[in-house]
Amino acid sequence: MKMRRLAYPYVLWMAVFTVAPLMLVAFYALTAYDADGRLFFTLQGLRNVFATDNTVAFNLFGLADLFGFNLQVPIYINVFAKSLEIALISTVVCLLVGYPAAYILAQHSRKRRGQSNFWLFLFIMPMWMNALLRTYAWLALLEPMGIVNTVLGYLGIGPFQFIYNDFGIGLGMVYNYLPFMVLPIHSVLVKISPSLIEAAEDLGADSTRTFLRVTFPLSLPGILSGINMVFMPAMTTFLIPDLLGGGRYLLIGNAIERQFMVSRDMTTGSALSILLMIFVLASMRILTKYEQESSEGGLLA
């Protein structure tokens, strides 16, 4: 009973700062003000999202180009698809870069058990700086007349268009979200008992097979939560596409921001938010389901 009473402040906190805002967003999504300033129920916001009067060619991952079909979709659906594309690619790149990094860091921490890991610290440290600042720094580095292009110019190469395109946004996302991939994978890897690795070797597995059959499957929970932690912000961010996309780039985060800040259309903005939230929650749900299945063997125990 005592424990339950201790939970009350948190329940209150969540009610005020999570549940109430969510309900407000849902409320805004389904209402609008008429000319007289009266509130009325409407599905116009949702309708706007799926409006077919303004369509563009759907080209997720360049599939349309590849297979030569022409599918016209509502503009917001295309923005959704574009966001999904960039978020997925960034997540995959984070995983490809982050896993080996986490692996090497884990080997390192294991060798010096009990001591703080300097390299892991270096990995985390950028997270202590303001995200805006970090992203501006990339602008300075990568802009057409920026440091990288200047150096490349001395070498007789370039200039390259690094920013204001998919590459720039993807780079920004990978850079910003990589620690969120590395940390959970690292913390799972260091917990794998060395005797499991030795057991695999003892049973005849060389280092490659030990990795594929033991280390990798055991690190899946870390991979899944890493994917969670990267995909979610990558899907919803507006800061990175705003800066590194040069403001010309429309991802779902920017679309929502503009509905509120530029068009002042709270109804459509809220409808977009709700749909995005449902989409992200659904994808997380699928991932956690996998996570639960793979951890049934006592992985997290």
Binding site: S195, L196, E198, E201, D202, A205, T210, L218, L299
Partner: peptide
């Protein structure tokens, strides 16, 4: 000879069973 090529097998102190396998 690396461990995986030695013709002997070990029963580990804390068993070291693979938790992800039945």
């Amino acid at each position: 000879t690396p461990p995986h090529q030695r013709k002997l097998n070990t029963v580990f102190q804390r068993y070291a069973l693979f938790p992800h396998l039945n």
